[in-house]
Simulated scan of single mutants.
Amino acid sequence: MTSRSADAPGTGSAGTGNGPAVSRREFDALFDAVRTWGRWTPADRGAWNRVTADHVRRATAAVRSGVVVPLALPWNTRPGPDNRRAALHHMTDLGDVESPEPSTYKDFIGADYHGKGVTHLDALCHIAYRGRLYDGRPAGDVVGAAGARFGAVSALGPLVTRGVLLDLPAVLGIRWLEPGRAVHAADVTAAERALGVTVGEGDAVLLRSGHVRRRAELGAWDPGTASAGFHVDAVPLLAGRGVALLGGDGDSDVRPSPVEGVHSPVHALAVAAMGVPLLDNLDLEALSAAAAEAGRYEFLLVVAPLKVPGGTGSPVNPVAVL
């Protein structure tokens, strides 16, 4: 694998900005070009309909070492610039009942998980663009106080497929991509060549920017205003390959957004146009090390969201098996 050294810790590659800028008119044309509305039944599984039993069998058969790598961040109860709605955890039973035996110890957890502090899956009812969810469903008619009647996380079920790690810092020979660095289509194809892997139909594509390592070494920042991630010009490539799931150690979007008036354009394109669920806030550091040691950047990926009727997503602990 070819690489090059950074001049300083955390230095990104040449062309570290979030551009080029994309007008709203250009973005709307792109949205219409990649959308897959009306393609699948059931529609609320979206691109996950691509993953057949044959896809699962092939992904399972590709397991070699049996090394299992969890991909979730620790449950974070400490408020910070990247955890403004901190998760909750407190004890509800400390075993202080004298009889009968045995004593029990219980706790409570809770999270407003659609943020930057909890590893989670975005369901298809989570994102609307121009007032419509995936498949053209009017968001106001479908999502209410009781949850969603279309595209809920409970419609997805367990997600099992071939995962592909696009480890950009490993390809570039740097420690991480700086916040605000866009990953373009050319970066994706260059990573495929360097890592010896090709994204295919039904795959889950995980983008490592080195976010978790940067946070550990330099401290937390607000990734809602500055984060490495995909530029919208990478989306047609991913759409053409037929990906079924997209995720990263950020939330897939580069920020600041290159699209005027759209804060999370990759979210809009993936979820609302293509029907591709998203995995946000992964910890890909251990997977990066395991993939480098094994010399292979494909693996079996298993994601089991909570079965929440009407839910817009779920906290998850995805697992990669090499």
Rank of each mutant, 00 (worst) to 15 (best):
L156T: 09
A29C: 09
F150C: 13
L300T: 00
D112G: 11
V321R: 13
P102G: 12
V308K: 01
V212M: 10
L195H: 06
H90L: 14
L218G: 02
G240L: 05
G17V: 07
N317S: 15
G80H: 11
P315G: 02
D93S: 08
G66M: 06
V143F: 08
N49R: 15
W48K: 08
L245N: 06
V205L: 00
P158D: 14
L172K: 02
G196M: 05
L133T: 04
P236A: 00
L177W: 01
V34M: 07
L287C: 09
Y113N: 10
V142N: 10
D135N: 13
A185V: 11
T312A: 15
P42K: 11
L133W: 05
M274G: 08
P236K: 04
V316T: 06
V212L: 10
L207P: 07
A62G: 12
V171S: 07
G248V: 03
D28V: 11
S99W: 14
D44R: 12
R175S: 15
G180W: 09
S227F: 03
L71C: 04
D222S: 15
G117V: 00
D112N: 12
L245M: 06
P9N: 03
S3M: 03
E26P: 07
A139S: 06
T119D: 11
T198N: 02
R58K: 13
G115M: 09
